[in-house]
Design a protein around this nucleic acid. Structure first.
Lengths: 218, 218
DNA sequence: TTCTTTTTTTCACGTAGAGTTCATATTTGT
DNA sequence: ACAAATATGAACTCTACGTGAAAAAAAGAA
């Protein structure tokens, strides 16, 4: 999980960075909105911590631009007591709001809540996005049609990322305990799912003599 | 804009009333769920502020009854820290949640957000316009007649844009939890709604093996 | 009320699309 | 090189969805 911290004050960035690293997150930094936009375009970022008050480009403008690029969850930072900020921020689609000065615990707690909420709804790896709400898979901005079994299979793999799954496990979990068909039907679906995944076909790794594993390298 | 305040404690009602009046809203008061139901039946109310803890009839029961009469947005009040309340409330269809003690600014901010959201009483996509107040659908400047179920189905879809909805979900939300008919009745209504949507029929996407999804893309 | 019209629900059929099986090709590890 | 496991293509089966029509229910009109 990678967090992008956008704040003009280096001191504040460092403090937040410290908390985040201690909690096991990767951290990227931007000192203004321009840098932030570049990073969001080029890196895999799971959450953005964005300060409202910034000299070069203010938080709201940056927020709008970022949301136009990718819908990454945003946690906003603001001076205490400015309730108007809160209101406006929520309307522009922020996910949560923390006032300075904040406690490390609170910040991390909110980060966790946001990440959990958003990762229950969406899976992303580079430009592959699976939306669990709409059931839509997108690769390179293009919607990939999945059959029901392909979708269920892929969801199950993603929910069990990096875990080798036997054909029996897949059959009982994806097909249902009451399926009494051939093991090899899994192979056929793997083949079809790989085709659908296109350039990401290699995310489904064959574990010889065992089954398959879904992984996202790097 | 009229706000109904439902709370058994007069002191709290007065405090909230004060804030609301200062912000230019009309205010009605109810000291219990029974009064609230009566007022909702007979008055034009735009928002309800509802306390969870009330002696005569608790907030949840009241909430359910109110939602059965009219779908007026509800902002819930609760003692701090009871996350279970929050969860349950959202499931029952509340729009937001404030914990006591709350700041006046925060309360007003949330009221504004809710009212704004709910007064976006029109949905538009290209030249398709659905007016939630008059229940009129317009396409290419021409009024399309919708049957009651078609309207309810369409509004539900629009309110859950880009989310795949199962037949069960549709039945329980649009038809009501107490509908015990055939799943396939949904299909028939989808067919009719698609016909009514004419060139926008493809906004209703079938999610094979799952249900349907409303989307406005391309 | 009673009749008429509109809306909703059920149902059966045809079909496109999805799932399964299987035979054959290919890969992998020893 | 060999055996065992996996990948693949194609035939076959099955299922879920779209549809039209008819029955049932609800809403309006007289």
């Amino acid at each position: 999980m990678t967090i992008l911290i956008v704040d003009d004050e280096e001191l504040i960035r460092n403090v937040i960075k410290e908390y985040c690293l201690n909690s096991g997150y990767q951290v990227l930094e931007a000192s203004d909105g321009y840098e932030a936009v570049q990073l969001v375009k080029n890196k895999n970022i799971d959450l953005i911590i964005l300060d409202i008050m910034m000299p070069k480009k203010d938080g709201y403008t940056t927020l709008k631009e970022l949301k136009d690029i990718k819908n990454i969850p945003v946690l906003m930072l603001s001076a205490r007591g400015d309730e108007y900020d809160k209101l406006l921020g929520f309307e522009l689609g922020i996910d949560d709001y923390v006032t300075k000065p904040f406690s490390p615990k609170e910040l991390i707690a909110r980060i966790k809540v946001i990440l959990k909420r958003n990762n229950d709804e969406i899976f992303t790896y580079r430009d592959m996005i699976l939306n669990f709400k709409s059931h839509v898979l997108t690769i390179e901005e293009k919607e990939i049609k999945l059959t029901p079994k392909e979708y269920e299979l892929l969801s199950f793999f993603i929910q069990n990322k990096d875990i080798a799954l036997s054909r029996e496990q897949l059959l009982s979990k994806v097909w249902g305990y009451d399926f009494f068909g051939d093991d090899r039907t899994v192979d056929t679906h793997i083949k079809m799912l790989r085709n659908s995944l296109g350039k990401y076909r290699h995310c489904i790794v064959t574990v010889r003599g065992m089954g398959y594993r879904f992984e996202t390298k790097e």
